[in-house]
């Protein structure tokens, strides 16, 4: 009897198996992957002390304030990203002035003036310079 049980156990152990790698991958594919954490690598290069200060203000805002709330900005890039991009691209003074303008435009009242991003369905408004030249 003992031998029969051992043989049966061995036979079953040959044929029985847990989840195969293929099945695991299949199961994984049914779950939506968690969004990748933003690293903001472009923010972490500084040209001066003001840039350093605003970059860290931005990182603080993104990590502790913005992350606790849903996205409410009507633009892509969002106003906070726009501000830091403007500061990096145009310098602290013009960048901040540009941000104030953007902040007043962030009211969702004029979608007809912008293109719409297909993925996020937000209004596209990248950082642009004001050009005094006649068009």
């Amino acid at each position: 009897m003992k031998n029969i049980i051992i043989i049966l156990f061995l036979i079953i152990s040959f044929y029985s198996e847990g989840q195969s790698k293929y099945e695991l991958e299949l199961l994984k594919s049914t779950l939506s992957s968690a969004p990748k954490k933003q690293t903001w690598s472009f923010v972490r290069s500084y040209s001066n002390e003001y840039d350093f200060m605003f970059s860290h203000l931005f990182l603080f805002y993104k990590n502790f304030i913005s992350s606790q709330d849903a996205n409410s900005c009507s633009f892509t890039p969002s106003c906070s990203i726009y501000a830091i991009q403007a500061i990096k691209k145009q310098g602290v003074v013009i960048g901040l002035i540009n941000f104030f303008d953007r902040f007043t435009r962030c009211n969702s009242m004029s979608p007809e003036n912008y293109l719409i991003d297909k993925h996020s369905h937000l209004l596209i408004d990248p950082v642009r310079n004001f050009n005094f030249e006649k068009q």
Binding site: I94, N98, D101, R102, T104, R105, R128, Q135
Partner: peptide, 23 residues
Amino acid sequence: TGFYIGNIYGTGKAVNKRNSGLN
């Protein structure tokens, strides 16, 4: 003051945008 100066800068951009649209 920030909003006031920002609005002046934004006005320049708005005119640029409108004229570019015509072009």
